[in-house]
Design a protein around this nucleic acid. Structure first.
Lengths: 341, 341
DNA sequence: AAAGCTATTGTAAACGTTTACAGTAAGAAC
DNA sequence: GTTCTTACTGTAAACGTTTACAATAGCTTT
């Protein structure tokens, strides 16, 4: 119809011989009106192809019905579960969800994303898997928009967060391997910075608690990618000392497994593997990969509920569980001896 | 600082004893101003924690610097490549990207998403992998916002689109199998509706061109999921007639391969597989899966460039290629005979 | 008949920007 | 000394809504 200028309430007011106020009220179901008029207005509005100008409405109402989700752009596949949960709750509540990408450690891109949504007066911001530095955290705290971090913890809980306990996960993964008789346990693809590095601490603590030595070359640092798995194996392959590896993500585990396979090392016969996350990926590869499975959907739930209910949610750690699949094997007594120093 | 009311230009004007016009101009680098004043204003603005109200700005400027990307919420992994391309070009151009989800065939959710962004006067809309019905298409055409569909074709090209030629891809995949000596070729997980179904047409045409019969039970309809691969195999396993399958997506191929493996059927020894898409997934599983690889990144590029340059892009098909990996095998003459009716 | 309701509609201000245009002052050119 | 520039700043309207409040008319009540 009119692809020139957008139809406004004023146009409809003119066409119906009513005031803009009446039209506005009718179109958004406020107050009571003659049913004849209501019918006339809605019909004309549809016919003229009216679409509301939300910028104008937001401006006077000083708020919007939008939730912004700012997601790390690193190739991870768990964020979609978090987003699923957010959308599952937000849409029925009449909220719309805008997703933006930002760099995991990239301040300028984070600031850009935050600025974009803050300028538009979103009703809340959910930050997924982002490592925010103090400066960004400060800006976030200064603005009057409720924000929450998911899948990362925040120093001093400047803003609330919901994640898994990385330290405990690291400890648990290590304990799992030790329980299966492993003593030479590698750690692959964990970043050196951010809350995720607490997994390393958990690993070291568990090893120490069992009086097991750790060699530096067992720890490969990375960023949870598939390629990190490959690189980690290249590192381990030199001495071929370790009997198992704890992998930073499902992708890292798969990369590691594939790289090992190329050297003729089979999982779980020659190498046991456990990964963090436990997304559907671990069930798609063969052997299936044992994982420390996180509750991503629940994280999303926690995030959106915080925004909807406005309750002062305490920052919290969500439970994780060990899901045994086919990538881990119990070492025989003989193997444990032969591998012993 | 002030978490009560947001600081406006008016507040800064008051604090600096200037007019709002001057402050506005300085803050957005329009016109020339005394460098002293500029410094004073920018400093005070920062100090007071000023953030622009984009709703107000958009309102008067009648436009925004936002590109909306509405993505199918079906679990596919190629859309991220499309989005990558869009962001890679949009951000340097000073455009911000908002991503929304909508149901692949779900009109209400599509309309909701479109309405949300149209109301906010985005500068362009990119629809990814969405099957739009006539009504939605009509609304999209009526509004004065440039829109483009990626990874789907649009009947009559009501709005421009960029995708791969599904018919040709179907034909090519089939040809590939025939070239390897296969004659009993299955098709798994293709939806019955939408442009993607053209793959079925291509398959049928190729079979017909080679005078090869097609049995109904070779064609499994689905929606490109992992589970579709499993279900397809359950269907094929009954008679175990086919020697290869063309799979609707990488995930479908993986599902099919895993299900087959459970019946003791090995890829590619007992079953050859080719998938559409060719995302990184096909390189992560073993054996690696031969794929009809689409140019997703280029699709995203085409979409964003259409919006930025405003050129009247013709709807077009992007090239795809056959990437041979390890899931396809040439049938021996003996096998071809033994399998012959 | 006055007062009080009720149902419906209108008036007008407000939201925070942007920007065309007007204004001012100081210096340069004549 | 007058006019012309130049550099800077102010005025005010506009963008499209929403909403408190006022207004009107027709009823009902007393």
């Amino acid at each position: 119809m009119n692809s020139e200028n957008r139809v406004t309430i004023k146009d409809i007011a003119k066409a119906t011989q009513l005031s803009v106020a009446t039209v506005s009220r009718i179109l958004h179901k406020k107050g009571q009106h003659n049913s004849q008029t209501v019918k006339r207005v809605t019909e004309i509005a549809k016919q003229m192809g009216y679409v509301r100008n939300t910028s104008a409405a937001d401006l006077v109402k000083q708020k919007s019905r939008i939730v912004a989700v700012i997601v790390s752009d690193t190739k991870s596949n768990f964020s979609e579960h978090i987003i699923d949960a957010i959308e599952d709750k937000a849409i029925p509540a009449g909220l719309n969800v805008f997703i933006l990408h930002a760099g995991n450690h990239d301040e300028p891109s984070q600031v850009r994303a935050i600025k974009t949504v803050v300028e538009r007066a979103v009703m809340g911001i959910i930050l997924v898997s982002l490592e925010l530095n103090d400066r960004v955290l400060a800006t976030l705290k200064d603005i009057s928009i409720p924000s929450i971090c998911l899948s990362t913890s925040v120093k001093n809980a400047t803003i609330p967060f919901v994640t898994s306990d990385n330290y405990q996960m690291g400890y648990t993964a290590t304990q799992l391997m030790i329980d299966k008789g492993h003593t030479k346990i590698a750690l692959a693809g964990i970043p050196t910075t951010g809350s995720i590095n607490l997994r390393t601490q958990g690993y070291l603590a568990c090893m120490a608690d069992h009086h097991l030595p750790v060699k530096p070359e067992w720890i490969h640092y990375g960023s949870c990618t598939y390629d990190d798995g490959i690189k980690a194996w290249q590192m381990y392959a030199k001495k071929r000392e370790i009997t198992c590896a704890i992998c930073a993500s499902d992708f890292t585990a798969i990369g590691l497994m594939n790289a090992a396979a190329e050297s003729g090392v089979k999982v779980p016969d020659d190498l046991s593997l456990v990964s963090f996350d436990g997304t559907e990926m671990v069930d798609m590869v063969r052997p299936r990969i044992t994982s420390i499975t996180q509750s991503f959907y629940d994280m999303g739930l926690a995030g959106i509920q915080y925004l909807i209910n406005g309750k002062d949610v305490k920052s919290e750690y969500l439970p994780f569980k060990v899901t045994q699949r086919d990538s881990t094997r119990v070492l025989t007594a003989a193997e444990q001896d032969s591998k012993k120093d």
